[in-house]
Design a binder for these strands. Structure first.
Length: 437
DNA sequence: TCTGGGGTCCTAGGACCC
DNA sequence: TCTGGGGTCCTAGGACCC
């Protein structure tokens, strides 16, 4: 950001909905409030000829149709102990988290920790609806919003009246209140000088938290936390840091930057040093275009490339068709088509191929993905198959000299991508230091 | 007790062109 | 024919995030 005499100091909020999916379900099933509830399990497989029917699916495992009557009592929902099969927890209520379960944990493991937790299937359409609702509520008060997925946003509060005086506390309170009125949901907010610190701050008083932090409080409030709390330090990096005796953010801040660069590379090493000192110049980005679109599925049980050839082939085609449908619906064409395979030992490989002409046609995608499939070893059994398309362009805007619809897929104007809630950003040229994610 | 699905960004090597 | 450097595109894998 160029320093102008009148530039206000930055006040950035990070807003994170509390146990979002689970909280949305509790709006529908209020009688489950206070109970351990987890969202997760496997969505239904796409219809595939000769697909085997699971013999022992517990009653109630099927997704509840929207608007269908709620079960009379909580015993109408399956318990975690009744679940058998693959799948992870997407969200857990705080009551369930008290047993040690958390999102990403395998359901079979979670069942050991909290067998009586109720298991609800995910209803993404409903979560997306509430997501739009809460973002609209925020936009009424603070329009400069960066989307970070279904339950998270950054908000630039810097220019709003009164924010410079109280650091953003009143505006943040108003936003929380507005979301509660509109959606009946709580969230946690951190307000600090930048995105990196706000992301950390929003977690400090969850749920229903509000944490205001000034730059001079980094040493007392941020440094004691584990390095892993920094967005961008994941399991691998934190393990490598731990091996160097670095566990807290304070220890990371005290580490020699030269050593960090030596061990972690120029870019990541320098970023680690900056991040530990709470420095982050990234702007709040209110608009972005997708880079790739993909579809993938994990099988109920591992499949063999030859023995289950027909089933795999039908599944593969179905993934390509759904991908083509996504592209068309969103109004994009893609040039780079790729596949992803996960073997029974969880190792993963990818292959991709770039076409001359961008496409959104299912058959073209299927043919290219089929070529990719010929380049992978198929001796081990498979647990996952995926199809991806990248090098995206807008379906309407054809490259110079090309006909408008090279694949002939669009006979009418394709739908525009959903509107973002805020105006385009002033800056796309980034400051000297561009932080990690 | 094995680990979902949808993404982004970074690295690194090779091809190819100037 | 050899040498070298820079830029861009393509491909594969991995870390990380929600």
């Amino acid at each position: 950001m160029p320093d102008t005499p009148t530039a206000p100091r930055r006040r950035i909020a990070h807003l994170d909905m509390d146990a979002f999916y689970a909280s949305v379900e509790l709006l529908r099933y209020p009688h489950l409030r206070g109970l351990p509830v987890v969202i997760g399990g496997r969505r239904r497989m796409p219809p595939v000829p000769s697909a085997t029917v699971r013999a022992t699916a517990p009653a109630g495992t099927q997704p509840q149709a929207a608007g269908s009557p709620a079960p009379a009592a909580d015993d109408a929902f399956p318990k975690l102990r009744d679940y058998a099969g693959r799948g992870v927890i997407t969200t857990a209520t705080y009551e369930a988290r008290a047993f040690g379960v958390h999102s990403g944990m395998g359901l079979m493991k979670a069942a050991l920790l909290c067998p009586d937790a109720l298991l609800l299937p995910a209803d993404f359409d409903e979560y997306r609806r509430l997501s739009r609702l809460f973002k609209q509520a925020v936009a009424e008060i603070a329009p400069v919003i960066e989307d970070r997925g279904i339950d998270e946003i950054y908000i630039d509060l810097s220019e709003l009246p009164g924010v410079q005086a109280d650091g953003g506390r009143a505006v943040a309170r108003a936003i929380k209140q507005r979301i509660r009125e509109r959606c009946g949901l709580s969230c946690s907010v951190g307000v600090t000088p930048n995105k990196l610190l706000s992301k950390i701050a929003s977690e400090l008083e969850k749920p229903d938290g509000l944490t205001i932090l000034e730059a001079h409080e980094v040493q007392t409030k941020i440094w004691p936390l584990p390095a892993r709390r920094i967005n961008g330090i994941g399991p691998k990096a934190s393990e490598r840091l731990a091996a160097l005796g670095i566990h807290t953010i304070a220890e990371l801040a005290a580490a020699d930057p030269g050593m960090l660069i030596e061990r972690f590379g120029q870019s990541y090493g320098a970023w680690l040093h900056h991040a530990a000192h709470g420095r982050d110049d990234r702007p709040v980005v209110t608009r972005s275009e997708p880079k790739s679109i993909s579809r993938e599925t994990t099988f109920d049980h591992d499949l063999h490339a030859r023995r289950d050839r027909d089933q795999l082939s039908a599944l593969f085609t179905s993934l390509c068709e759904r991908l083509a449908d996504d592209l068309t619906r969103k109004g994009y064409l893609g040039r780079t088509i790729g596949i992803k395979l996960r073997y029974e030992d969880f190792s993963t490989i990818t292959r991709d191929q770039t076409l001359t002409l961008a496409t959104a046609d299912a058959k073209t995608i299927r043919a290219a993905a089929g070529q990719c499939l010929k380049r992978v070893p198929l001796d081990k059994r498979l647990r996952l198959l995926g199809v991806r398309i990248g090098s995206l362009s807008r379906a309407g805007a054809s490259p110079a000299g090309e006909p408008a619809t090279p694949t002939g897929v669009f006979s009418i104007a394709p739908p525009q991508p959903p509107l973002r809630v805020a105006e385009p950003p002033a800056i796309e040229d980034l400051p000297l230091f561009r932080g990690r994610p």
